[in-house]
Every structure is written in structure tokens, then in C-alpha cells.
Amino acid sequence: MSPGRLPAPVVDGLLVGAALVDTWVNVDLTDPAETVCALLAAFALALRRRLPLTTFVLALPTALITDAVFATIAALYTLSSLSRRLWLPAVCALAFAAADFLPWPWSAVRPAELARTPSLIQLVYTLATAAAPVFLGQLVQAHRELSLRLAEISDAREHERLLTDQSILSEERAQLAREMHDVVSHQVSLIAVQAGALQVGSRDNETRAAAATIRQLSVQTLDELRHMVSVLRASGGRRTELTPQPSLADLRRLVAGSGIEAELETDLPGDLPPTVQRAVYRTVQEALTNVRKHAPGARATVRIHHGDDALHTVVTNTAPTRPALALPSAHHGLVGLRQRAELLGGTVEAGPTADGGYRLHLELPAEGRPNRE
């Protein structure tokens, strides 16, 4: 139902009420035949949407033997607005005009009187009265079909726009995949090769350990880049999941390969929702990356525990022991962590500590359910 339009049962009820008023005004209620026909025509309007032709047939006798024609006109309009065969409402209109024009009983018809001018004027008026609901019904039907066609055109244009957007997105993803493969993958490969050479050629154990860590991280980054390139090149042609997704089981390997002195303490079960496990993993990953970038020589502690119906992930680090190198950064890491936590109904707090270190705290509701006030 369109906004501002009355419900169909209300409209039908109003039409029945109007037909009853027409019956009370124009029908001799002392005549049983007229009363029965008029009441039958009035209440038949309740069926006009489901059985339009039957409704008109039931309403036609009242136009023949009484002056109450409202129900018949309403039934004729409904039939015209719902029928896709124009000849059917046209025939019904002629039947209504004949019933309304000819006197009742038909035995009283005198051809000479019908040929008089007043009778001809009445005939023209009756034909116009019968044609009006037919034309109005056809107009309403045409308007309804036009609205449907316009809606279909709008849907088709929206679908075409989506296809165009997908095509543009596919091209952009393909271009990004090429850039990642040709530039980023190449440079990371060079880092891995140089780190491997340094690991083999160096005599200093600390240097060799650092080179091994760099090489391991480079190889892992290359694997992730190759998977991302394959996802981008899919371009929506088939569903490609970003698998395997990290979980709590990968935390120890993450901490061990972080390249810094770090300690992990956790008592969380391994059956938490995947979204929660990913949030915890990415938080620890980002925190350790920031320690490595901004606090060289610092020690880190990762504590993950469950308490107060919430999951707590706290990553702290000591003060750096040597100056940090100036590395490029978009400063999107903490913003992304906060957005991920908000989606799960949690919070992220980060800031410096009193001893010159840094602390990051992720709090998520138990079972990963968003908080509901």
C-alpha cells in the first residue's frame, strides 16, 4: 500500500456504506424486490476485488428495477480496472446502459416513446454514465501498469549501475594485484634474499639471529602477499576466502617470531568465536609491531585472560634501550583495532606507562557478543 492511501478493506467498507445510502435515498423500501436487489448489490461490493465480474452481475438488477445505480457503477469501474480484455467491460457497460435506460417491467416499453427527443437525450446521458467508469478504470489500470514498468526500469538501472561498479572494482583490484606482485613482492623477496645472505655470511650470533628473524618474517609476508594477490585477481568471479585466518593457536608462534624479547601468558580456551580470536591475534600483532618499530630493545609482556564476563588482552613493554629508527607509518593501526573492537562491542585503550613504556588493553565481551544497554 502506498503512503497516504487507505487500506483496501476500509475503501470497500466505504463503498458499501455509500451504496446503502444510495439505496435508502432512491429505493422504495416497501417493495421487497427492489430492497433485496439493492441490498444484494451493495454488499456484493465487498467481493469486487476477488470476483469483479460476479459483483457486476449481482449489482446489475438494481440498475434495472430501481434508481440506485451507485453499486453498479462501482462494480463496473472495478471490472474495467482489473480486466485486461477491453471487450468485457465494454459489453458490461452496454448492459448497464440498457438496464438503466429501459423502463421496468419491459412489457411497458413503447417504441414510439423511446424515439422522442427527451428519451434520446436520456439515452445519451445513460451511455455517458456507463462509459465513464469504464474509461476511468482503464486509466487506473494503465497508471498501475506504468508504475510497474517504471519500477522495473529503475531496478534494471540499479542493477546496471551495480554491474558497472563491480566492473570498475574488478579493474582496480586487478591493477592493485599487479602492483603488489610487481613492486611489493619483488622488494620483499630482495629483503628475504639479503637477510639469508647476512645469516650465512655473518659471524656474529646476534646478527645471524636477527637476520634469520628478518628472513622468516619476509617469507611469511611473501606467502600472505601471494594469497592476497590471488584474492584480488579473483575479482568477484568466485568466492575466495581469506584463509587460513589466524587464531589463538598461532599466538605463540607470533610472539616467538616477533624479533623482540616477549613473554606470553594466556588462559583462554581455544573454542572462542573466530571473530574474537582474530581480534585478539591482530591486537597482539599490532602491539608487537609497534614495540619493534618504536621501542627498540624493549621487553614486552602479553597477558590474555578472562574475567568479569569479559576477555582482556594487555600488551605492555618497557622503555626502549636505544633510539628508534624513523620508519614510514600511516598511523592507522590503533584506529583499525578500535574499529574492530567496537564491532564486537569492546574497547581498546592505549597509552604510555609511568616507567617510560607503553600499554595497550583490549576488552571484549564474553562470547564476542556486543554490549546491549
Rank of each mutant, 00 (worst) to 15 (best):
A93E: 03
V231P: 00
L39S: 09
P328A: 01
S83W: 04
V291G: 06
E172R: 12
Y77G: 04
H312M: 12
D155C: 07
A130Y: 02
H305C: 06
E160M: 12
H159G: 07
A112F: 01
L311D: 04
T221P: 02
A212E: 05
E160W: 13
S202I: 01
A71R: 12
Y358G: 06
P61I: 10
E179C: 07
A287H: 04
N317L: 01
H143V: 14
A59W: 05
L242F: 09
R239I: 12
D250A: 14
R369H: 12
E373C: 09
P274I: 13
V219E: 00
N290K: 13
T275D: 15
T243R: 15
T62C: 10
I65C: 06
S154M: 04
N26M: 08
L225P: 00
L364T: 13
V57G: 08
P105D: 09
R49H: 10
T283F: 14
H294M: 02
V11A: 04
P111N: 10
A249M: 06
R338G: 09
V291T: 11
V193A: 06
T243Q: 15
Y125P: 01
S154I: 06
A41N: 10
W106F: 14
R48Q: 13
L20N: 05
T318G: 02
A234K: 01
E158I: 08
S167H: 10
T221I: 00
E241P: 10
V10E: 04
S167P: 07
T213F: 00
A366V: 13
A18V: 03
A262F: 07
Q141K: 03
P296T: 03
S167R: 11
A210K: 11
L360T: 02
T275N: 07
T23A: 14
R282D: 07
A131I: 07
Q285T: 02
S80P: 02
L222E: 03
P323N: 09
A98E: 01
A19Q: 05
N317V: 05
P9L: 09
L364G: 03
A108L: 07
Q277N: 09
P105Y: 05
V280Y: 02
A42F: 10
L190Y: 03
L127N: 04
T283S: 15
Q122F: 15
D267S: 14
T213L: 00
A174G: 10
R116Y: 09
G237H: 12
A95P: 01
A112G: 12
P365G: 03
I260M: 04
T23H: 02
K293N: 09
L254E: 00
R49K: 11
